[in-house]
Design a protein around this nucleic acid. Structure first.
Lengths: 188, 188
DNA sequence: GTCTATAGTATGATAGAC
DNA sequence: GTCTATCATACTATAGAC
């Protein structure tokens, strides 16, 4: 999908989309060039270290978006139930209703780890912390809250994989529907 | 009769391992050659269509192993509880305790889908059917059994992703520990 | 069946004009 | 900042000797 962009921020957005669609190894410079509407030289102007820098920028932008869509709602103001619901809306938006993949998955395969060392792990840990905080706030003891957070991230990642494999967003939608009860422990 | 693996069968085993380690796009012919100990020409002798044929053979072998490790135990003889436990052991073995990835995940990204069209989906559906059968046998109504099976596959795939991201098999082990209760509905 | 050698293409990356 | 043109390398795949 050749969308003409000009600014670096717009390029990063397109690059992130391309990585989330193709994974790291299949996202060639030719594809990234087409996705951004920028020639290779322009890409190297913005990202001097090439694909590696693009991957790092894509992860950085992803971290921002996840924080905005999921983590900030969870740690913000308002009733816990309302904040969890906001986070579900954020998850649905960020993962495009289950159609978009997660870099925690795609960037832990193949050559990606060498380009973005530790970044996928850090993203996963940020999600774990945010969900654990919510579960603790819901009244679960610390240990149990960590387990619940792990289950939440496991369900998100797994639902995205299954949705991709089946070509249906249903598994993701059903996962979103059961997440609040998991986090709140039926106290919703 | 002694089971002597043909050179091709051994090659398929090594190729499957390489694809499960690197994903489709990062598994170059050079890596596949190194993994099998066969030169490129030998690989083309066994797999005339090259990487595409290797990917198909890897999936076919994976389907065999999943059937053997998970599906046959679930649909076999013995008490349901014992069969579910056998399937958990099979899952632990097949996914190397959480260290190995799943082709349902890796082969739905990048160029893999073109090489093995529909195969990852078929694998996911086979797992869903097997788990749904077990859940139904445990007394869950058909509709609920399908939901439970979906949750089981979601948990397996998600746990593998998180384990990979964190560099720890713990999430996979904890997932295995809670799967029986999910399938049996506490009636274990 | 396996080897060496190599074809043809795509890749990541640069140089230099404008 | 963006272009065209190009580099060196790695890729998939093939040919032909043995």
């Amino acid at each position: 999908m050749p969308v003409i962009k000009s600014s670096r921020e717009e390029a990063v957005e397109a690059i992130m989309r391309e990585f989330r669609n193709s994974g790291y190894d299949a996202a060639s410079l030719a594809r990234l060039s087409a996705a951004t509407g920028l020639g290779k030289s322009s890409l190297y102007h913005y990202f001097p270290n090439g694909k590696e820098d693009m991957a790092k920028a894509a992860v950085a932008r992803t971290v921002e978006l996840v924080a905005e869509a999921v983590i900030e709602p969870l740690t913000g103001v308002g009733s816990l139930k309302a904040r969890v619901q906001k986070a579900m809306t954020g998850l649905a938006r960020f993962y495009n209703g289950g159609k978009a993949s997660c870099l925690v998955d795609l960037f832990t395969v193949g050559e990606a780890e060498a380009a973005t060392p530790g970044l996928a792990k850090a993203m996963a840990e940020a999600l774990l912390r945010a969900f654990a905080g919510a579960a603790e706030e819901a009244g679960h003891p610390k240990r149990q809250a960590k387990d619940i957070a792990e289950r939440a991230v496991v369900e998100i990642e797994g639902a995205l994989v299954l949705a991709r494999a089946l070509g249906s967003t249903r598994p993701f939608q059903r996962m979103l529907a059961r997440l609040p009860a998991l986090l709140l422990g039926g106290k919703a």
